[in-house]
């Protein structure tokens, strides 16, 4: 084993923006780096609107169109661990333990067009986890309004006498099921910016080096020497991540929770393995392994072939 496996991976944060973090991980295998990427995009639980009960919709947009838009709105999810997945909850459809309710009610009474923004969505669930004194910053299910005016996302426009009245139920979920639950808006992932490993093939007209722009990460690695022979033993070793939050979770939270989710998956399997320990299958494998049951007739209940 090389130096990397003894010391473990190294992390360098290069930049932290308003909703993104840019960091480099060194001395790690591509397999694990890619697992982190995948888990951060697709498997961190967040909150998103999942059910919409439309009471009145006289706007120009169809019900399902608005429902789809509502689903994609990022909702504050820092405290989402306090909620259950609906499938694990004992309620019939949804309840306070597994969902957050939001109301939207807007009616245009003037001649001017009225804009309905996400800030008009009101969280109606009184949750015990929310800290209402703290200026509503961490409240579960609060729509994210990160723009300068604090209006949030435009949901729809209403003409005079048009009305929109609906109830939304936000549930906990992961992006593997639907992308609306993804906490990451964009995920930058790069390794080997000089393409020394030939993992990619640049299309070109005359000269690939001339026609393709250099990656910003090229400054972090040695450029290839001229006529350098291809090193077929080389392995990627340095990974450039840019995690951009969609708003539901803080960028640092996405990274840390991503790792936690991966660990919980592993811990879950270890747990199942331990449960299996008590069943015949594993003990059979184990006793056989010690050589005591060598050559015995296989367990008739289990088809070994």
């Amino acid at each position: 084993m090389n130096r990397s496996s003894e010391q473990g991976p190294e992390v360098t944060i290069r930049r932290v923006g308003r909703e993104d973090v840019d960091f480099v991980v060194k001395d790690m295998d591509l397999a694990l780096a890619n697992s982190f990427r995948r888990v951060m995009i697709g498997e961190i639980p967040t909150l998103a609107i999942d059910l919409v009960e439309i009471e009145i919709n006289t706007s120009v947009l169809a019900d399902e169109f608005i429902a789809h838009r509502l689903g994609l709105i990022p909702l504050e999810s820092t405290l989402v661990d306090n909620l259950l997945f609906t499938r694990d909850c004992d309620c019939d459809q949804y309840c306070d333990k597994c969902s957050v309710e939001l109301m939207l009610s807007a009616r245009c009474t003037t001649d001017a067009t009225m804009d309905v923004y996400t800030r008009d969505l009101m969280v109606t669930t009184v949750s015990q986890y929310n800290n209402y004194d703290n200026n509503n910053n961490n409240n579960l299910g609060q729509p994210i309004c990160n723009d300068q005016e604090g209006k949030g996302i435009l949901i729809c426009k209403l003409r005079k006498h048009q009305e929109l009245r609906l109830k939304c139920v936000a549930k906990k979920g992961i992006a593997k099921e639907h992308a609306k639950w993804s906490p990451t808006a964009a995920m930058g992932f790069e390794y080997d910016p000089w393409n020394k490993l030939r993992h990619t093939d640049y299309w070109y007209e005359e000269d690939a080096n001339e026609e393709w722009p250099k990656s910003a990460n090229c400054d972090w690695e040695e450029p290839p020497r001229e006529n350098e022979p291809f090193d077929y033993n080389a392995k990627p070793n340095q990974y450039y991540f840019t995690v951009e939050s969609a708003g539901s979770l803080k960028q640092h939270d996405i990274v840390m929770r991503g790792i936690d989710v991966l660990q919980k998956k592993l811990a879950g399997i270890i747990f199942e393995l331990k449960v299996l320990d008590e069943t015949s299958e594993k003990s059979r494998l184990d006793t056989e392994f010690q050589g005591t049951a060598y050559g015995q007739t296989p367990n008739p209940e289990y088809n070994w072939n």
């Binding site: 473990g8 991976p9 290069r14 923006g17 694990l32 640092h252 991966l262 592993l266």
Partner: peptide, 27 residues
């Protein structure tokens, strides 16, 4: 499985350490 958990622990530890050190550009 155990080794992979340990590996994740190291990365998370180092990340938190880096965040707290504040040794980066920020906007």
């Amino acid at each position: 499985l155990d080794n992979l958990i340990d590996l994740c622990d190291v990365v998370e530890e180092k990340f938190i350490e880096q965040v707290n050190s504040g040794n980066y550009k920020s906007e």
